[in-house]
């Protein structure tokens, strides 16, 4: 089996599992909507601050929801020693890592696709002209987050307090991704032209590549039994 096939097979298994149970997706979705609702109390309805803070709120919601999903996604592998089974398979560790990252990106992105229109509705944003670069920003931000998160979720699942450790590790380390993602989103929503947003998107891509390479190399040390 070549590695693309291996990645596809593991990904297929994860997606199938999630589609059957839907527990992670539902939890993430409701959670991110809850965050958006809670944040509405911070501002006067219809004030200008609301529109300028929208990108920040959006990413806080996504970051918190991702954290929830990421910690669950690995915890599920621990039940019935699934992870051992996966590691015993004649599959490269890097294929396992890549498949897990893609899976996590997929789930988080799906949640974002639902949260974004709700946000547009609640905060009266206009994304008509920029929807494509906006989706690209969401995808790139999510990739950075999911890459680091996939690695850290293995670590946190093996600690005494389980889920508690993930945000403590994940949030400080992913500060650059969050900053670049918020900035790109803010400028897109503010109607700046793409030439101005591009440096931030490029930065986001650079961060994604850096994190992916580092986490990819370190993954095998984390999963080995």
């Amino acid at each position: 089996m070549n590695s693309l096939r291996q990645i596809y097979t593991i990904l297929y298994k994860d997606v199938l599992l999630e589609l059957r149970s839907k527990d992670i997706l539902t939890a993430m979705l409701i959670f991110s909507l809850t965050v958006v609702v809670i944040f509405n109390f911070v501002f006067e309805p219809g004030s200008a601050e609301m529109a300028t803070s929208a990108p920040g709120i959006l990413w806080v919601a996504f970051a918190f929801a991702s954290n929830l999903g990421l910690s669950r996604s690995f915890a599920r592998e621990q039940e019935n020693s699934n992870m051992q089974g996966l590691l015993i398979c004649p599959v490269d560790r890097s294929a396992v890592f890549t498949a897990k990252v893609i899976g996590n990106v997929l789930f988080i992105f799906l949640v974002e696709l639902v949260t974004l229109p709700v946000m547009v509705l609640f905060f009266d944003l206009s994304i008509g002209a920029v929807w494509l670069p906006l989706l690209a920003t969401l995808l790139l931000g999510t990739l950075g987050f999911a890459t680091v998160g996939t690695l850290f979720s293995v670590i946190s699942a093996n600690t005494r307090s389980r889920e508690v450790m993930l945000p403590i590790m994940l949030f400080p380390v992913t500060v650059p991704v969050i900053l670049a993602a918020i900035k790109s989103t803010a400028w897109l929503l503010a109607g700046r032209d793409l030439g101005q947003v591009w440096p931030w998107l490029r930065l986001l891509i650079a961060f994604d590549v850096l994190y992916f390479v580092v986490c990819f190399l370190l993954y095998e040390y984390v999963v080995e039994e």
């Binding site: 680091v148 690695l151 850290f152 670590i155 590790m169 380390v173 500060v175 650059p176 900053l179 670049a180 930065l203 961060f207 850096l210 580092v214 986490c215 370190l218 040390y221 984390v222």
Partner: peptide, 16 residues
């Protein structure tokens, strides 16, 4: 693993 990522992250955090 965390010590390695943390250290590489420091200049990136600063720049960002």
């Amino acid at each position: 693993v965390f010590g390695i990522i943390g250290f590489i992250d420091v200049p990136v955090v600063y720049m960002s």
